[in-house]
Simulated assay, not measured.
Amino acid sequence: MAGRLEGKVAAITGAASGFGAAAARRFVLEGAKVVMGDIQDAPGQALADELGDAARYVHCDVTIEEQVANMVDTAVSEFGQLDIMYNNAGIVGSVGPIATTPADEWKRTFDIHVHGTFYGCKHAARVMIPRKAGSIVSMTSTAGIMGGLGPHAYAAAKHAIVGITKNVAAELAQHGIRVNCIAPAGMATAMVAALSGDHTAIEETEKALALASPLKGRGGRADDVVNAALWLASDEAGYTSGHTLTTDAGYTTGAAFPTPFAEREDFVAEAGKRGMDS
């Protein structure tokens, strides 16, 4: 069903590659005008050129508030409004034991994930509040809702994004603005592929993810996240706010682990007694 974002204007950070680039293509296909922000200028501009009149590219380092503000202002000046803010920019960041994590790496990880999301929410709210409408979508992770699934700085930052989402949703509901986030598991993207040493090995990464997936034989793909972002951005999610939507094949439900008590046994009563009549 095309046209789900017809007449809407979106701003997407981290739009030159990965989830951001896939979202830019899909949003335009669904009828939106898109302002794409990234620090990767060559691929970002190339994608904007590919998408034509429906897209604009601006250099945007999400750790610099003025550049995020400029991206939002560009959406308004070029296309007249901002309906969707997709805070997508992210990195893996600092990796390693807590006892040897450098402070500057920790802070840089937070600068991109937490401060970048804050700036996106702040400046989207600035232009959405007068219109009494809008959808803000941010990227968290399964590492942001469950321990042990990511490096320490990354996990802490992603937990913070869940908190930002809930609090900002509570504030902006009175203005008709919805605020949600998406929590993917490891997906077949360049960022995940790079962990194995080759950021271009997307197909191999998907195959490896499929082997470990709770949904046997099905690895996570960029489109799985983009479909979630599309729904949250669209009017179809018009009564959903403050929500963390997982795209993880059920991993955070425990589906990746052996199912406890999978075999039928007698009813267990007090003191270990068995049977309904005990």
Rank of each mutant, 00 (worst) to 15 (best):
M1F: 13
A2I: 14
R4C: 00
R26P: 05
V35H: 07
A48T: 13
A48I: 13
G52E: 11
D53A: 10
A55W: 11
V58G: 02
T63W: 06
V68P: 01
N70G: 11
L82E: 00
N87D: 03
G90Q: 05
G93E: 05
G93A: 14
G96C: 14
A99I: 14
T101K: 07
D111A: 15
H115W: 14
T117Y: 04
H123G: 09
K132I: 10
S135L: 07
M139K: 00
G144V: 07
M146P: 06
A156S: 15
A156D: 13
A160M: 06
V162G: 01
L172K: 00
A173V: 14
Q174V: 14
Q174T: 11
A183T: 13
P184E: 05
A185N: 11
A193V: 01
L195D: 07
T200F: 09
A201W: 11
I202E: 09
T205H: 06
L209M: 09
A210F: 01
L211I: 12
S213F: 04
R221C: 04
N227E: 10
A228N: 01
S234C: 04
D235M: 06
T240C: 09
H243D: 15
T246D: 05
T246Q: 07
T247P: 03
G254V: 15
A255Q: 14
P260G: 11
R264C: 02
A269R: 13
R274K: 14
S278A: 15
